[in-house]
Amino acid sequence: MKRLLPNLLRLAALIILVAFLVQPALFEPLLKPLVQANAPAIYNQGSLLSLTLSHLTTVFIATFAATVVAVGLAILVTRPIGAEFLPLSRSLVNIGQTFPPVAVLALAVPVVGFGEKPTLIALFLYGLLPIFENAMTGLSTLPPAIVEAARGTGMTAWQRLTKVELPLALPIILAGIRLSVTISLATATIGSTVAAKTLGEVIIAGLQSNNLAFVLQGGLVVAVLAVLIYDAFSAMERMVSRRAGRV
């Protein structure tokens, strides 16, 4: 019962978000007071829905690639064969997080040009760190008794990894992906300063034409998306950790 109210609120937020993206004109009266007499209150230089979809696609591709690479690397450095890389990987994660996203984005431009690509690269690189850090923590802090037991039952290294270690580390890895997605959703807006098609376009158009309604709608859509996705991941983590017995 205690979960009911928050869930109703989330559902309401989702419905309002979808309604706004499909029929933004319905919300015009709400945003009208924020703009000067003749300025448009609803973003009119492109469809909000398609911008949102390409925003989500960009974040999804970058996060997916980051997950594959980060989890793969974390598996490698927690095996005996890759143990030599462990100290360096820890300090690289630390150093990497001091790079501001804008700098990564700006530095990617000379290499790959304007558009979606620098954004994808920045989101990918920036998304790697939380996932890698969490996967490394998850895989290296497993209860030794369980790992021993798995070895004792005669499981091969591969079976131990896929049947015991990864499932047990999954909640922590998911927490890393959640962090990475939330950061990416917000950072992707900055991608529009290098001509990527994301919701940042709406915000920047608002900043340039002094149109507060644009800034507000772009910002709110991203924020609501981030909150909903964050909550979905949290729910998934609770489910997975209940199954893994790591509550």
Binding site: L34, L185, A186, T187, I190, G219, L220, V222
Partner: peptide, 17 residues
């Protein structure tokens, strides 16, 4: 937590008014 999810360029913009 919710403030953190608002993209920085939007939050900067929203505070102008």
């Amino acid at each position: 937590n919710i403030i953190q999810t608002i993209p920085s360029i939007a939050l900067f913009g929203l505070l102008i008014a």
